[in-house]
Amino acid sequence: MAERIALSLKPDFASGRWAWSLMGECFGSTGTVRAQGREDAVLCALAAAYPALRTRVPAYVVVSLPPTARLWSFVVEVEVHFSGVSLVPCTDADAPLRAAAMRAFHPAQPVVAPPTGSLTVATDGSATRGRIGWGWLAEDGRHGHGTETPSVRQCARRRHPVLAELRAISEAISALPQHHLVIRTDCRAAVSLVEEWAVGGHRLPDGYVATHHTAVAPGGLLWMQEQVRKEAPRVDIGWVRGHAGDPLNEGADSLAKLARRAAEGTWGFTAADVPQRAREIADAFTTAHQTTQSADAA
């Protein structure tokens, strides 16, 4: 019976090299290759690993690529060139192998204390006219917000809303390192991406240019992808209906709009006014959240 072996890739766009990791139940191999893109990196990694893979054939090499990837048109040629090796798409059952392949990129870390307590956090994004804003609000009143004008070479404008949502999620994860986070967002697309990243998936939003240098900088999609994989054990993400009266969600929405509109100057106040206004928003909506929780418990 053919062994399933997961292939995971990690790009370093500054050097043009890709780290690769192949992990199966009875097989493991890692290395780096120079490649022009993810599909090219798959082939280069297979070429580098094939001397070791030949001892395990027949083998299915599991890769995470979109159904529209050109490489799927050449699987027969791949099988001819790498005898005994077949490229196949990953499935939910491959998640443990994918996770093992991702762990190979990170050296063993010292044992640290587990996160303390569970904290519910709402996140939200706002986007219009080429500018995005994001905000997050925790049930204990802690909060954050930010704004940015993404380069059109980095991300198509139609995908700005998803980018803003993901920035909010990422900022909350970074700002609250000592807690297990119950993150709630009203963006299903962001929930789906984070859930896939947590188990080693590579999918990015349509319209995002992963080869742009900002992709691997803090706040870039590939940077956030790695962050989610590392922090996955302490993050529980789920969807909540937006604008349906959930105080934390409404507060996160207000913080995202505050950040964006302050930068645009459309609300008639300056950046210096933002911290105080953000604190007022956070206090009002966390108080409403606590009141709702007390009423539900009564």
Rank of each mutant, 00 (worst) to 15 (best):
Q109W: 04
V111S: 13
P114D: 12
P115S: 05
P115G: 11
G117N: 01
G117W: 10
L119T: 03
V121A: 07
V121Y: 06
V121T: 02
A122S: 13
A122Q: 00
G125R: 04
G130R: 11
R131G: 03
R131H: 07
I132V: 15
G135W: 01
W136H: 10
L137S: 00
L137I: 12
L137P: 03
L137K: 00
A138G: 09
E139L: 06
G141P: 00
R142N: 13
R142Y: 14
H145W: 15
H145I: 02
G146S: 03
T149N: 14
C155V: 12
R157L: 12
R157T: 10
R159G: 12
P161D: 11
P161H: 04
L163I: 14
L163C: 05
L163D: 03
A164P: 07
L166M: 12
L166N: 00
A168I: 02
S170D: 14
S170I: 03
I173C: 09
S174D: 13
A175N: 05
A175L: 09
H179T: 09
V182P: 01
I183W: 02
R184K: 15
T185H: 02
T185K: 02
R188L: 15
V191L: 11
S192K: 13
S192C: 14
S192T: 15
L193Q: 07
L193A: 06
L193V: 03
E195N: 11
W197K: 06
A198W: 01
V199K: 09
G201F: 05
Y208T: 10
T211Y: 05
T214K: 08
T214P: 04
P218N: 09
G219N: 00
L221S: 09
Q225I: 03
E226S: 15
E226A: 15
V228E: 00
R229E: 09
K230Q: 14
K230E: 13
E231W: 13
A232V: 05
D236E: 13
I237H: 07
W239K: 05
G242H: 05
